[in-house]
C-alpha cells in the first residue's frame, strides 16, 4: 500500500512538471499548446542524443540539452507564433497541432520509433523506506526535480524583475507594451521555459520507463489533466491536480489493469469538464464567450 502511494507520488511529480509546461504557455503566451506531448518527447530525445549517442560528459549533456531546448522554444515563437499574433485563438491552437505533426515526423526521421534505453549517470536501484515501502532512485530524482522546478519558478516569478514582467505581460500584454516591456521576449522566454520543463519531465519519465516517442508523447498529452484541474492558468493549481491524476492513474491501473494508464487522465479531464470546467483550483474565472 505504501509502495503504491509512493508510486503515485513519484508519478504525480512527473505530472506536475508536465502540467507546469501546459500552464506556463497558456498563461504567459495565451496558447493552449497541443504540441506539448511532441515537445516533451523531442526534449527527451535531444537529451538522449547528447547522453547516449554521443556519450558526452554529464555537465555538457545537461547544458547542451538546456541550450538546445531553450533555443528551440525561442525559434518556435519567432518563426511561428509571432507571425500569428492577432489571429483568433483557434488559429493558434490549430498551429500547435500542425507543429505536433511536424515534430513527430522529424523525431521519427532522426531517431526512429523503437524504444531506447538511456545512459544512466548512476545505476538505477530500488530504495526501501521502513519495512516494505519501496520506490526507485529515479522516481525520487523526478520528485526532487519537480520540487526544484516549482521552488525555482516560485522564486523567479515572485522576486526577479524578469519574472514580474512575465506576470505583467501575462495579465495584460498591451499595457505591458505601453509600459515599455518587450513582450516578444517574454513570449520567447515563455516558450523556452515551458519546453525546458517539458524536457525535464520527459527525461525523468524516460528514466523510470523507457525512451519511446509514443510513450513520452502520450504522457505529455495526459499532462493536460493536472493543468485543467488547476484551471489552465494557475501554476499552484497544478500541484493538487497532479496528485489527483497520479492517484487516479496508479490506483486505476491497480484495479482495471495496465492499459488503464492510457485513459485515467482523460477520464479525469471529462469529469472535470462535466463538473467544473474552469478548474477545481483555478485562480480566476474563465471568460465565458
Amino acid at each position: 500500500m505504501l509502495t503504491l502511494l509512493l508510486g503515485a507520488l513519484t508519478l504525480s511529480a512527473i505530472y506536475a512538471l508536465v502540467g507546469f509546461a501546459w500552464v506556463l504557455l497558456r498563461r504567459t503566451n495565451g496558447i493552449l499548446n497541443l504540441a506539448t506531448g511532441a515537445q516533451l518527447a523531442i526534449g527527451a530525445f535531444i537529451f538522449n542524443q547528447f547522453a547516449t549517442s554521443w556519450q558526452l560528459p554529464w555537465p555538457v549533456v545537461v547544458l547542451g540539452t538546456l541550450a538546445t531546448v531553450a533555443a528551440l522554444g525561442g525559434v518556435t515563437h519567432w518563426v511561428v507564433f509571432k507571425k500569428l499574433s492577432g489571429q483568433p485563438e483557434f488559429a493558434l491552437v490549430v498551429a500547435t497541432l500542425g507543429l505536433a505533426s511536424a515534430l513527430k515526423g522529424v523525431s521519427s526521421l532522426i531517431w526512429g520509433t523503437e524504444a531506447r534505453v538511456m545512459r544512466e549517470p548512476v545505476p538505477s536501484q530500488v530504495v526501501t523506506f521502513g519495512d516494505q515501502a519501496t520506490t526507485t532512485l529515479y522516481g525520487l530524482c523526478g520528485l526532487g526535480a519537480a520540487v526544484l522546478v516549482f521552488a525555482a519558478a516560485h522564486t523567479f516569478f515572485k522576486f526577479s524583475t524578469v519574472g514580474i514582467r512575465m506576470r505583467a505581460a501575462a495579465e495584460n500584454p498591451v499595457l505591458s507594451a505601453q509600459g515599455g516591456i518587450a513582450v516578444d521576449w517574454v513570449y520567447v522566454l515563455g516558450w523556452a521555459m515551458a519546453l525546458t520543463v517539458a524536457a525535464i519531465a520527459g527525461i525523468m519519465y524516460a528514466y523510470q520507463t523507457a525512451l519511446s516517442f509514443h510513450g513520452v508523447e502520450a504522457l505529455g498529452m495526459r499532462g493536460l489533466a493536472p493543468a485543467l484541474i488547476g484551471g489552465l492558468t494557475s501554476v499552484r493549481g497544478v500541484i493538487p491536480g497532479a496528485l489527483i491524476v497520479g492517484l487516479a492513474e496508479t490506483f486505476g491501473t491497480k484495479v482495471f489493469g495496465g492499459s488503464f494508464q492510457d485513459v485515467a487522465a482523460w477520464i479525469v479531464i471529462l469529469v472535470v469538464l462535466l463538473i467544473r470546467p474552469q478548474g477545481l483550483f483555478g485562480d480566476k474565472q474563465v471568460q465565458r464567450v
Binding site: V94, A95, L97, G98, L99, A100, S101, A102, L103, K104, G105, V106, S108, L109
Partner: peptide, 8 residues
C-alpha cells in the same frame, strides 16, 4: 507528417 504539419 512533416509536410502536413508544416503546411498547416
Amino acid at each position: 507528417l512533416i509536410i502536413y504539419g508544416t503546411l498547416v
